[in-house]
Design a protein around this nucleic acid. Structure first.
Lengths: 352, 352
DNA sequence: CTGAAAGCGCTTACAG
DNA sequence: CTGAAAGCGCTTACAG
């Protein structure tokens, strides 16, 4: 690896833009085709409004110079950008990336590009990211959850763009919300565990300040215990960071709090993987000695040995619906509800 | 969930932009502060060139109207955008997301935003995505691997922006490459497995057409067997898609090809997780009955039971270095080599 | 079906 | 330290 000098930024010939600048502009295409820029613009955007002959000349010229329109100029003059901003707690985890991929795919079909940000579960970070992105004058904005800072709400109000809030079902959505009931999901999983014979159920969940999903999931667990006539001990409810490792520590915490615990419900598959692995390390049989359930149903959940019992979230559907709603709101054709419940389901596998 | 009509896109008051448009422009700030737009621009970008008094007036006005500059206008006039395009095979897998996060973080510190695309390991898809993104006139471009279509190379040449190719060490990098030797990594892992006593080693790898990493990893495996005086049977080299499930099928294929196989080296942690789980399902002890190794060292690798022996790739470092090189190339200050080797290491854990 | 004019919201020289 | 002028690369009315 000889430290040879880096190549110059300047393109090495090959392109024939008529001016000093390397990148072809619409003007260059127009000159080559012997028409004006409006005609080029029309040939590209509304080819049916241009004669066959002109269209062919323009297409040939576009090909010759490798012309791709400048989006900055386009959004400036047309007063609408092709950008949709999407903010998720993290892009790293499979649970969100399934939604992101669908969102991105669906928006791309209509020519919109996704500007992604990871908030690390921090609404101050969300505010910071949004203020950085808002300068793109996004055509739509996607955020996770329904709790935001005052400044974030101000920016969302003034952005003049449709907003979707994902992953929960707020009472008062900012604009349109697409999600599922976090409360009902943990409520039903707790009930399911009970119906399968488990009685001493601990709860591990991902906790960050001002996180509505965490609050709802914890409330669902508590409500179920109450309805079952069981008392919920605070030590059996363990807030944790969003890491596999944390799930391992969480399992130990539960076993310390109650050596006879027979089930650990996790508010995230990530924690469940950690809890499951720690159980195996401790020589416990799952589910005979301790049952474990997750939340999310990521690809890994069904592949583990034992396979993970979990809450299935329609991740792809949330992304797709969110994209469709954004597009329809831009077009002014959305007629659906302001809260879209995509539901969830309890998936029983081997671990409980 | 009553299907109530969606709220109007128009912001509900609260913002005082002087015209019909809801979003404040620099002109609105200028009027409020009693100066011209250039002074506002200067107060924002080069505050030291403006009087204390003016600066305070402008800052107050900016706050009052919630002004955020329009990036489209800014990039159009300054002839440089704040966008960096990055194309990865997939954004879903932890192996890439570690790099993406670092890249994003490092670029954000300098005010650049990342426009991300997932190519699904398909260089035609890469071409399509790039042609969609190039209209943003990116200030830098990051791609994975060193094999691209002719049209992609043309676009990269004419983009007038620094380009980094990640994840391999090409002989002739397009501009600057940041990666590691895929060949040497599988070569050394094969050698390591041999030194630990394994003799009948199969190889599972992620294969997509025209993928340089796959070719190099396979070549490394073959070279090691040759140097060890072992023959490599074609049935022991199994190309697979990039899924956990595929790793399970792969393990079975190896055991069919050689019932006495004692190790399976995987060209990806994703495949290794599948192979490991399938081995456990079949009642095999890992590593006593069959050893398994991965590639990537994702978070999950060290948490599994048994913990996964694997090749550690400096994922975050690749992202960081790549961002730094892009920034230095933009500034014209990069002096490093055109191929940056970030290395790798063999991590021995329980599975081999 | 095609073009001349105006302008989107900023920043970059250049004056003063 | 501040401003008048020009213009980035397109698209949107409006003529013809």
């Amino acid at each position: 690896m000889a430290p040879k000098p880096p190549k110059s930024t300047a393109a090495a010939g090959a392109s024939p833009p008529s001016n000093g600048n390397q990148i072809a502009r619409m003007k260059d295409v127009a000159r080559l085709a012997g028409v004006t820029t409006m005609t080029v613009s029309r040939a590209l955007r509304t080819p049916e409004k241009v004669s066959e002959e002109t269209r062919l000349k323009v297409e040939e010229a576009v090909r010759r110079v490798g012309f791709i329109p400048n989006y900055a100029a386009r959004s400036l003059v047309s007063q609408r950008s092709q950008v949709v901003v999407a903010l998720f707690p993290t892009m790293m985890n499979s649970v969100f990336s399934g939604t992101i991929e669908e969102l991105s795919r669906e928006l791309a079909l209509s020519g919109y590009h996704l500007l992604l940000g990871g908030t690390d579960f921090d609404i101050d970070q969300e505010e910071k990211l949004l203020s950085g992105f808002i300068g793109w004058r996004p055509a739509g904005i996607v955020v996770t959850g329904s709790v935001h800072t005052v400044a974030t709400r101000h920016m969302l109000e003034n952005a003049n763009a449709p907003v979707t809030e994902l992953w929960s079902l707020p009472k008062k959505p900012f604009d349109v919300a697409v999600g599922f009931s976090n409360h009902d999901a943990t409520y039903q999983m707790t009930m399911s565990l009970h119906s399968w014979g488990y009685r001493r159920i601990g709860f591990l969940y991902v906790d960050y300040p001002r996180n509505d999903r965490a609050v709802d999931r914890k409330a669902g667990y508590r409500a179920a215990l109450r309805d079952l006539g069981l008392t919920s001990r605070p030590e059996m409810i363990v807030p944790l960071p969003f890491e596999i490792e944390a799930g391992r520590a969480g399992l130990r915490r539960i076993l310390e709090a109650d050596p006879d615990a027979d089930a650990v419900m996790c508010g995230s598959d990530t924690l469940a993987v950690g809890a499951l692995m720690e159980a195996l390390r401790l020589g416990l049989r799952v589910p005979q000695d301790i049952a474990i359930s997750g939340f999310g149903d990521v690809e890994l959940a069904r592949e583990l040995v034992p396979a993970l019992t979990t809450v299935r979230i329609p991740r792809a559907e949330i992304g797709r619906r969110s994209a469709q709603i954004i597009l329809q709101r831009i077009a002014g054709t959305y007629e659906g509800p302001s809260v879209v419940d995509c539901g969830f389901s309890i998936i029983r596998r081997e671990s409980a």
